[in-house]
Design a protein around this nucleic acid. Structure first.
Length: 289
DNA sequence: TCATGACAATCGAGCGTGGC
DNA sequence: GCCACGCTCGATTGTCATGA
């Protein structure tokens, strides 16, 4: 290959354009190779018990990498048209991974077209809308503090209730627990899972008692919705009430910026800033920024 | 043992903000 | 108006735990 420094500007740009998008082609080729290897059963020829074994031991892939690429290869094997979508960068491997179990001969073209150009999250939402899952049962139960957590996840549904749609775990201390989880179940329903402090649990119980006349079953979804509605009104008043600007959020960035008083802008930023020691830590952790 | 899911780490892109 | 910086979000990858 010629040295980059020796190339003319035109040649340099032409070669650069040639490289753009090669990543997708490379990915598609890799998947195509895996399809062929599996069809010829070359994994067995090379003393591997499975494709996964072949990819991890012979090709040096990580477990997750092997798993996702084999899944993509099997989707391509069933539906060869998938490869074109990968090659053109219209569908990402992660998005394909989310989609693969729902592909059939009848819907593959339609689903691929619909998922085309969407992010993985958007594809997950699309799958949830097309293939809705039932609501999860409500669950409120004590969990161990973070430091005492056993390897087994403490979040287990123990109570079944038809109507509510979110599960809740109760932490015994305010120490950081498992990460909150929000996942689409269908086009209009979400599963929300989180750990809360004992104080928050007490508030929920108190609200349940006070709302009993309007919410006889103590439905957590009703309580959450009512609480969020109140908080939303308060926050909109706090954050947007001072900025009486015609058009509001639809104004161009510069106008929005100019419409905000400097004092409140600075205050709003300071309210959400971690202490300076954390800034230094973050910079050390993220050297690329 | 293998397949799978969950989650954290990492990287890059986009956006908002402050300073010049 | 431009630029640098920091934050957030999405995509990908690696690791670990778990169930078949």
């Amino acid at each position: 290959m010629a040295k980059l420094g020796d190339m003319s500007d035109e040649e340099l740009l032409a070669r650069l354009r040639g490289h753009v998008g090669k990543g997708n082609v490379w990915h598609a080729e890799l998947i195509a190779y895996l399809v062929e290897v599996e069809e010829r059963r070359l994994d067995r020829v090379h003393a591997c018990s499975s494709m996964w074994d072949f990819c991890t031991r012979k090709l040096g892939m990580s477990e997750g990498e092997a798993h996702r690429r084999i899944a993509a290869a099997r989707a391509v094997r069933r539906f060869p048209q998938v490869l074109g979508f990968i090659e053109r960068g219209e569908i990402r491997l992660c998005a394909l991974y989310a989609l693969r179990k729902h592909l059939t001969n009848d819907n593959v073209d339609e689903l691929l077209r619909e998922a085309s150009g969407k992010s993985t999250r958007e594809v997950e939402k699309m799958v949830a809308a097309r293939f809705p899952r039932p609501d999860v049962p409500t669950c409120v139960e004590p969990v161990a503090p973070r430091a005492l957590l056993s390897p087994v996840s403490p979040i287990v549904a123990t109570h079944t209730d038809a109507a509510p749609t979110w599960s809740l775990s109760l932490a015994a201390s305010p120490a950081p627990g498992p990460r909150p989880r929000v996942e689409p179940l269908s086009a209009t329903r979400y599963r929300v899972e989180l750990a809360v402090s004992a104080g928050t649990k007490d508030k929920i119980d108190r609200i349940k008692d006070l709302m009993r006349h309007r919410n006889p079953t103590g439905d957590l979804e009703i309580i959450l919705e009512a609480s969020l509605a109140l908080l939303l009104v308060q926050l909109e008043k706090e954050r947007l009430g001072r900025r009486v600007v015609p058009g509001g959020a639809s104004l161009p960035r510069r106008q929005r910026r100019a419409s905000r008083p400097p004092s409140s802008r600075l205050k709003a930023r300071l309210e959400h800033l971690p202490p300076p020691s954390v800034w230094r830590r973050r910079r050390a952790i993220r050297p690329h920024t």
